[in-house]
Write a protein that binds this DNA or RNA. Structure first.
Lengths: 230, 230
DNA sequence: AACCAATGTAAAGCTTGTGTAAAGGCATGG
DNA sequence: CCATGCCTTTACACAAGCTTTACATTGGTT
């Protein structure tokens, strides 16, 4: 486990309490005591699994932090709102918060909600994360848009790169043509559209120029799947 | 948009209110007024984007419904709990609820939470929204499009896979030929169509190559049924 | 027991999905 | 305005697998 949390709250009593409660459960907490500092931490490049964000904050309130954060990051946010304030909660959810918890809260409930968020995030494919992927000798780095096989760089077009990315982040899983169309080409798959097939064909050719085995398996009537060592 | 919701709640006043509120927003509501009925609807094969589930229910309480549902389905569930009952909320989340909302609630908040759940589900690849089915030594995983019996992988065609899927998700229940035709082949069953029989025959042959017993029982004049250990 | 209708299944026929080359389209940048 | 690179469409060959046909078998009914 060992998840990292960013707690943005100016109530030092509460933050201390949560440190005591969450640390023994294997969470690594980082603290920020005002909105500006919290936003800076959240966007610093350091990875957080969940951000706990108070609404009432000095410098920059929780909504502002959330709004700015969502312009660049998809990190899940659990908002801590004043009790019973419907408007705050609705507003937060509409801004893209993943959950909220009215204060004062039961720490066990906080823990359960963090777990629920983490569980959901783990179901997401790595595509929505920006990490370097490696499968045997096949490497792909989203930050530099470069992919290589057996230390030979592959000359991929943007679309081919995105398709390989999607395949790699779903290793051993079926990626449907619908998924390709929607996530890579950004449109609904229409009948008789052969684009996906063409991109896969090109991708296969480029991979074959470097190594023998075809790791892209066709699932007839459904889509494609990347497999380890055929 | 046009999302389908299943609302399981015995408070007819509330359900009427929610119908009035949610229908104009493009939601298609289906109602169930007790737990047993709700569970039956949820597992009937009809698709729901989100299930709204009250905790206090006649026949079968919300937790029981959730627990049973989660044995076969991953449909997102938003639980409606009595206000302030921490324990209920924590328990629900741990059973696999996606969210909860304490009663009484602001309909706008309900709407915001439904939207949040739908938004999250849409980030998931289509295939991972289904769950692995296992019956004794027979396993089926929609995300990898793989089925195995006694750890031996079965080489099924797409149609055979879909038929086995339908049989497994209706363990011990009759699956009519009409169901097969409509849900797997996507057409009305016409007289003298022997396709279903052929697919079942092929499926049986492939299963028999691995294990002896025939778990697919023929219900003469009606259809087929998968049974546990014959 | 005889009959009929439904089912099991092998084999043939046919539809549909896929692989890929080649041409067309559509931007971007000299 | 052409050159270039990339995405899409078109076309056709091929293979997978779905459906049909035909006949054997089973189960229920009279």
């Amino acid at each position: 486990m060992n998840k990292s949390l960013l707690l943005i709250d100016d109530d030092t009593e509460l933050t201390a309490l949560l440190c005591d409660y969450l640390s023994p459960q294997g969470y690594q907490l980082t603290l920020a005591h005002d909105g500006r500092q919290g936003l800076a931490m959240a966007t610093s490049g350091q990875h957080f699994d969940v951000i706990l964000l108070d609404v009432m904050l000095p410098q920059l309130d929780g909504f502002e932090v959330l709004k700015k954060l969502r312009q660049t990051h998809l990190t899940p946010v659990l908002m801590l709102t004043a009790k019973g304030d419907d408007f705050d909660r609705i507003f937060g959810l509409e801004l893209g918060a993943d959950d909220y918890l009215p204060k004062p809260f039961n720490p066990r409930e906080l823990s359960a909600r963090i777990k629920a968020i983490v569980r959901r995030m783990e179901l997401l494919p790595a595509t929505s994360q920006q990490q370097v992927l490696q499968i045997d000798r096949l490497k792909l780095d989203p930050s530099t848009q470069k992919a290589s096989l057996a230390d030979t760089e592959l000359e991929l077009t943007g679309t081919e790169f995105a398709m390989l990315h999607l395949l790699m982040s779903n290793l051993g899983k079926l990626v449907t043509k619908q998924d390709f169309s929607e996530k890579v080409l950004g449109r609904k798959l229409s009948a008789f559209d052969r684009s996906i097939d063409m991109h896969v064909s090109n991708l296969r050719r480029k991979l074959a120029m470097v190594a023998e085995e075809d790791r892209i398996r066709t699932i007839r009537g459904a889509g494609y799947m990347l497999v380890e060592i055929p």
